[in-house]
Design a protein around this nucleic acid. Structure first.
Lengths: 188, 188
DNA sequence: GGGTACGTAACGAGCGTTCGGTACGTAAGC
DNA sequence: GCTTACGTACCGAACGCTCGTTACGTACCC
């Protein structure tokens, strides 16, 4: 419902109807609509974290790939989830508290990605061995979410295999050596 | 105003007041609120295209860098512009017509970036000479807009120099040659 | 006079929120 | 064991307000 109408069309009555309750019930649990929304976003993050995800393969870049593939809108479920997140940014940008929570969610997401980049660096999977893993995580999250937005607006242009190929290209570019010299160590 | 309150808090009365007019005047020019919003987004795109931008340096990757730097929220103006765009996605995702227009805007943006990638490829600035410039443009736009969103929510974490450095790292990774895998031929 | 360009006022709908009331579980008092 | 008291859960009507939109009046221009 949220994924279709967006947050602009979200009303307490619609929420109440969706859970076969009344607006009075909602206000019994949440003092204001804003509190309800904040709780809903929290819940969405928790359920996103707890949903079944693909198995983590080998350490390093393959794990980064798995994490980011779990984010991309490759299934209807993930599409709906991403639509809700993107829609929530309108409210979040206009509400300092929600914006702060969103910033925290981004920091947490980078925190999930970063260790895999650290492992990748230690395994020699990165072209630039001195790269800052936190910055790499920010870049990877940026690329992924930017791809999410484009894919949501133009799913025909960005079907699943195109998204996957673009992600693979992006990760491959991180694995390239800065200089075309044949002195780079091969990972095995 | 839009940059602060978002589209959720946008009302015809507020628009009318901002231009010292009346709601009647607005409805004289636009049949519905939706038409007004669509026109406003169009106008924003036009003004974004016509605003003074930094000079295009050398052909290829440096030009890509200039185009993307013009997008990033490095100035208050660009921050406000980006806030409006991100906020508009809530409405756009819920309205098929607006979503289609947004998809067109993305396609146009990729169309601006792509020729510079083509030039970069012909100039030998790309690590992968066979890379599809349209796909590269999509990746660059994705990276940039994903960075925009993170920067909007956490400007402290992403000040201008950090954004610039991340963009440069991203472009640098595109210029790297492929890793010399065991079976890969090293170029001369 | 008729069309264009507004302003003003109002309409009906829908919003978030408030509120009185009900049903129910439960713990204490006797 | 029955009664009283009370907190919790919830309903549904209603309040006050604001919204998008409409209707109508008016000044101006050709």
């Amino acid at each position: 419902m949220l994924a279709d109408k967006g947050f602009g069309g979200l009303t307490l009555r619609a929420v109440a109807a969706a859970m076969n309750g009344s607006t009075g019930m909602l206000m019994h649990y949440f003092p204001t609509k804003r509190a309800l929304i904040a709780h809903a976003l929290d819940l969405l993050e928790v359920r996103t974290a707890e949903r079944p995800r693909r198995a983590r393969p080998a350490e390093g870049l393959p794990s980064v790939r798995a994490v980011l593939l779990d984010i991309l809108p490759l299934t209807p479920d993930d599409t709906a989830r991403n639509r809700i997140w993107v829609s929530s940014w309108d409210l979040a940008l206009a509400d300092e508290g929600l914006a702060h929570e969103q910033a925290g969610r981004y920091a947490r997401l980078r925190g999930v990605v970063r260790p895999h980049f650290e492992a990748a660096g230690q395994l020699g999977q990165l072209g630039d061995a001195d790269a800052d893993s936190e910055q790499l995580a920010a870049a990877a999250v940026a690329f992924t979410h930017g791809l999410v937005v484009q894919a949501l607006f133009d799913p025909g242009r960005f079907p699943g295999d195109v998204q996957t190929a673009m992600l693979d290209d992006f990760l491959a570019s991180l694995g390239r050596s800065p200089l075309p010299l044949p002195d780079a160590r091969t990972p095995d």
